[in-house]
Design a binder for these strands. Structure first.
Lengths: 243, 243
DNA sequence: ATCTGAAATTGACCATCAGTCAAAAATGGA
DNA sequence: TCCATTTTTGACTGATGGTCAATTTCAGAT
């Protein structure tokens, strides 16, 4: 088998893997993990079940592969956000707020899967390789935010005697993911009277940043104006970002 | 069958249900949902599988029942916290921070299950009855916190032009649960350098409350002293609360 | 065009396990 | 002691994740 043939094969294999993942993701979003049936998936992608197992070592590995792709999409958005040149570190961190909201708006299916694999029993059942890949994506997101936090500390926009930078990143991530997860519980949505989840999540993030003492505080600059710049310069696809 | 016999039967039935739930919870914590085997559970509790189904309509219903008990324990702690007479609303809200930390410290297994049932596919598979029971527990927790938020607004400890009270409860819940969930991911724990999760969670909650403008701000009162009072008056069992 | 060995694909098959139900056992009042 | 009722049992079933020997496809050689 010559080299060009090899690359064509690899390309076809990658295309098939993507086909499988796309169908699996849709089925997962529609029916949930417990009702995701591999026989039906094989039927839909028009390959045999045996071929599925050429790509994934188990059902959990398949789901983990979807989570990895989602995390890579998220990391891509975060790295675009990192390139935003706001006029203060507080404006730059706002870019991640939009990036996170954009992720859960554009890829709700991926978000669900991301939540799913956080369950303990998933970690041990997926292949080592994909677990590492997920960790890599998490690391990319972490570093993107971490860089801005460090810049803020260096610039004196954050109090020097506050939380250490890594804990600040952790706090921001926690309030974001926590708000998204809680906001997906119908009971709580009703109790809290939430209609537009994206804006509720962003409000919580904003409160946290103020609590960290991240200057300028939200009342001291025009967040809507920054949103407009972000829409124009970084996330033109974020149509939900009505400003 | 006379009335006393009936009550004895009901008592025995309740005791057996508790036995099943206790074993199931331990197995769930040790092996995860996917490896929770009902044949093995039946063997451990020394009843047949058929008898398990006298108590629960499905495996998901069983897990939901555990979640309900966990939520009731949590609600119990929250209602004890609500009885704390702090010298300000900010001190009173701190009681919930300790209650939440105490819950995940004393009942880590219940916490895991609580997280598990947040997955969409669980909701539809458990019995209506238990889903309602869970909603009831969530409501108890919500109302306990909500009362203090309203008191704070009435007292002017929270800015009148800030988030509406229900959204404040939502924000507090989000940062708490979000921190706990993220803090259980080994990769992120490493990146953020977290060793004592309980204190990291409480730090995040504290930052959020400051961000909400909940007076007195954390720098303006002695949180450690309030912790000492809470330990002495409300949560004597909270040995982790070294103050 | 045809052959051939390697690689890829298949789907019948297997093991596991949630859930069922007819038969057996236990119960409690007469 | 007996009998009707309730409770318990565990063998059985169907569904499904995962395997692998048999088949098909493929690329290069003749």
């Amino acid at each position: 088998m010559t080299a060009p043939t090899q690359t064509r094969k690899a390309r076809e294999r990658a295309a098939r893997e993507q086909l499988i993942l796309d169908h699996a993701r849709h089925m997962l979003a529609a029916q949930g993990y417990l009702d995701l049936n591999l026989d039906e998936l094989a039927r839909r992608v028009e390959y045999s079940k045996g071929t599925l197992y050429q790509h994934f070592s188990s059902k959990e590995d398949l789901v983990m592969a979807i989570a990895v792709q989602g995390m890579e999409l998220r990391a891509g958005l975060f790295e675009r956000a990192a390139a935003f040149r706001g006029s203060s570190s507080r404006e730059r961190i706002q870019a991640f707020s939009v990036a996170a909201a954009q992720f859960s708006h554009e890829y709700p299916d991926y978000f669900e899967v991301e939540t799913l694999v956080k369950i303990a029993s998933f970690a041990g059942r997926a292949s080592e390789e994909r677990q590492n890949a997920l960790g890599l994506g998490v690391g990319r997101c972490f570093r993107a935010v971490n860089a801005v936090v460090h810049a803020a500390l260096a610039a004196g926009d954050l109090p020097a005697d506050g939380l250490p930078p890594e804990r600040i990143v952790f706090a921001i991530a926690s309030v974001s993911i926590g708000s998204e997860i809680m906001g997906r519980l119908p009971a709580l949505r009703l109790l809290a009277g939430i209609d537009e989840l994206a804006w509720t999540v962003r409000a919580n993030q904003c409160v946290l940043l103020d609590g960290l003492g991240w200057r300028p505080l939200s009342r001291d600059f025009d967040m809507a104006a920054v949103d407009r710049r972000l829409r124009a310069e970084v996330f033109p696809e974020a149509t939900w970002l009505q400003v």
